[in-house]
Write a protein that binds this DNA or RNA. Structure first.
Ligand SMILES: NC(=O)c1ccc[n+]([C@@H]2O[C@H](COP(=O)([O-])OP(=O)(O)OC[C@H]3O[C@@H](n4cnc5c(N)ncnc54)[C@H](O)[C@@H]3O)[C@@H](O)[C@H]2O)c1
Ligand SMILES: NC(=O)c1ccc[n+]([C@@H]2O[C@H](COP(=O)([O-])OP(=O)(O)OC[C@H]3O[C@@H](n4cnc5c(N)ncnc54)[C@H](O)[C@@H]3O)[C@@H](O)[C@H]2O)c1
Lengths: 213, 213
DNA sequence: AAAATATAGATAAAAAAATATCGATACCCT
DNA sequence: AGGGTATCGATATTTTTTTATCTATATTTT
């Protein structure tokens, strides 16, 4: 029914950072890791990490730690990042271009296969090896290609109509970077990225810091 | 001491969305709002909103709601967004350009006054009316201009050294978009923006949705 | 005017998340 | 080999956040 709550949100949000650090450690030739080390890296308490990792089902070895390979695997499974998700991006503007150029997504099982835009001067262009198509072709193309994730980067005023087209095209997961709270059917999940949230947190932190010294 | 925890994080993160919606309502000529309306917009329960607003110190009128103007003001004060914060941006690459071009920051009391980069082909350029300076001038300039916020958008491998330069230049708040956990003195606050966190949440949501229908 | 409805605030309860404690296991160093 | 240290897992506790309940106040409808 679309309104089920996702639990353990804070833990889920930390997973990608674990993954990143673990991959880096593996590249450096390590094969085990302790929560103490992860904790120091992330500025958290070891117990937090242990609880998070518990969610993935891995078990560590008392006195030793966890096997890095196992952990990487378990986190990927937990996040469902083993089978790469194909996505389309809507709105090849300044944010859209940045996301199209972001190398990191490979590591996160995300593959942006095409972009869509309404601006004739952008349609037909290629950005980082992905073609930009006319937004009107979106429903037809996503249906045919069976894509079920859309990354929304259009200006606020077009956000809802773009979302409607995605829904029409069978997309059921929307990563929403606009400042608009979308109205979508129950079976469609939306993750809204509010960049100002981070700024708000930083402002409050800074303020508190200044008050105490 | 830098390791004090910020409380009410979830509430703080919701504030900018309230602010955005409230400003929009004001533009539409409204002057009061109820938590029911806000809740419908944000897909939350009214009680959540009421608790959040309580933090700002505003009081509403039973049977009526809150005064929009008062709310906007209270939220801005709460976030310390009344006095515009000046910031510099480090790394005028694809993400950096997007941020430099983002209009939304005006509303959030953030003013990016200059950018810094190491690439000679970028130094001297102007992006959205902000000049790009040589990264080596950062410490001197931020000291002189008394800027205390830095937005970090360099490639991961240069993140720490760029952070060091910021600290040298007297910056004490870093908005960190890199995939690196920075090592900074206690008096410097850091807010790390991990874009993959949102993707992780979306993946889990999508997975749960698919399992239940 | 009375009844129905919508609302905030205060307080209480429940749920979730973070943190602590402790025993068992492994490793390291002398 | 033995003592010291690091580690995990299980369980318990504390803290924080979310949600519920109930009362008083305002508005709208009849
Ligand atoms: N730029 C940033 O750093 C940033 C940060 C956070 C959030 N955002 C949000 O992301 C969204 C996009 O921002 P931006 O700065 O990239 O804007 P932009 O104007 O640079 O890009 C928007 C793109 O969408 C295209 N477009 C317009 N209408 C369209 C439609 N109906 N269908 C398809 N494409 C359409 C435009 O042609 C343009 O290419 C906005 O909602 C903004 O608030 C941007
Ligand atoms: N592109 C995205 O959508 C995106 C999303 C999330 C996070 N990030 C992160 O943001 C960071 C930047 O990503 P990007 O895609 O913009 O990379 P980019 O390569 O496009 O831009 C990096 C910029 O930093 C400059 N630079 C390099 N070394 C420097 C130094 N020592 N001092 C100052 N400037 C220096 C480069 O010249 C370049 O202009 C990375 O850490 C990336 O992981 C990017």
């Amino acid at each position: 029914m679309g309104n089920k709550k996702v639990q353990k949100l804070p833990s889920i949000r930390r997973m990608p950072t674990y993954l990143h650090k673990l991959k880096q450690m593996r590249k450096n030739g390590l094969d085990t890791v302790s929560t103490t080390i992860m904790a120091r890296y992330m500025n958290l308490e070891p117990i937090v990490i242990r609880k998070d990792l518990e969610l993935t089902g891995v078990t560590g070895q008392p006195g030793v730690g966890y096997k890095i390979d196992e952990l990487i695997d378990a986190i990927k499974s937990f996040l469902n990042w083993h089978n790469t998700a194909e996505a389309v991006l809507i709105g090849a503007g300044s944010l859209g271009r940045a996301l199209l150029g972001y190398e990191g997504f490979e590591d996160y099982g995300l593959n942006i296969i095409a972009a869509f835009d309404a601006d004739p001067s952008k349609i037909g262009a290629e950005i980082n090896e992905r073609e930009v198509f006319d937004i009107n072709r979106l429903p037809e193309m996503t249906t045919r290609l069976q894509v079920n994730m859309g990354i929304l980067c259009v200006p606020n005023e077009f956000a809802q109509e773009a979302a409607d087209m995605m829904v029409e095209g069978g997309i059921n997961a929307i990563w929403n970077f606009t400042n608009v709270s979308l109205d979508v059917p129950d079976h469609v999940v939306v993750q809204r990225e509010v960049i100002a949230s981070g700024l708000a947190v930083l402002s409050v932190k800074l303020n508190q810091q200044m008050l105490t010294d």
